[in-house]
Design a binder for these strands. Structure first.
Lengths: 137, 137
DNA sequence: GTATTTGCAAAGTGTTTGCAGAATA
DNA sequence: TATTCTGCAAACACTTTGCAAATAC
């Protein structure tokens, strides 16, 4: 039986470029931004391909995904230890990881007492970072 | 001086209809669903108007807004005491309020220690409710 | 009587899909 | 060589905007 195999993945220069570009962004970026960045650099990749690569990375759990207030998806390469939450600057997009252990435990507890199965949680913190506060008022 | 007045708001049957329809939905609904519902009932309202009414209600803090996984906005009329979090069923959309006091306090603390200003938070819990679990596997 | 609201049609956004040609293994 | 991947163009879904006619105050 073929099963739901781990979907074969080839090594292509485009995917490598996307991953590299993503790694060079300390903060969350949208697919569009990433694409623009790749085009600006010499290594142009189709927008479609960027979207596909990102979806793949998301499925593989190698990126964290959040949504900005317009609903646009923002991606960030994930470190080794999985699942992480961030505090994002609404002005410049800068992000910093935050310790959300409390929330994790809370979510687990709700999951247990609610009668709901497969409970997942999304936590997003946004604010205005110190630098942006200092700059434009 | 004109200032940023509290934007005059007229009472129109359409707005009343939107608010009424919203009130009759125990769970989160999208603008599109709400519009369909209004059309099905005799009181037809333009889709544009539904969107405008919802934005108005959101600005007035009279609805809670979340996003489903596709990015579509879902609205739910808010009770008296403001700001509330929910556990949503991914299959049927059913929701139940959850006590997120822990998270509120955590968010406040992060806000204080982070150096970020105007920190806001979004918390979304999703799962599969008991009824849906029992029904379709 | 005047300013706001409505609602249609059209534009705009981010994202996905169809498909022929190119590239990988 | 057999599949997978790329990338353009077109399709999609939700949402917003322009504007003339209708409506509330």
């Amino acid at each position: 039986m073929t099963g739901t195999g781990p979907s074969p993945t080839r090594n292509t220069p485009q995917r490598a470029a996307v991953l590299r570009a993503l790694g060079s962004c300390p903060d969350f970026v949208s697919a569009q931004m990433l694409h623009a960045r790749l085009v600006t650099a010499d290594c142009a990749v189709g927008l479609t391909t960027v979207y596909r690569a990102l979806r793949q990375l998301q499925a593989a759990g190698r990126v964290d995904v959040v949504r900005d207030e317009t609903g646009e998806r923002l991606y960030r390469r994930r470190g080794a230890q999985g699942h992480q939450h961030y505090l994002l600057c609404r002005r410049c997009g800068r992000s910093r990881p935050v310790d959300a252990g409390v929330v994790e435990r809370w979510a687990e507890q709700v999951a247990e007492t609610s009668g709901y199965a497969e409970v997942e949680h999304t936590v997003e913190l946004t604010g205005v970072c110190g630098r942006c506060r200092a700059t434009a008022r």
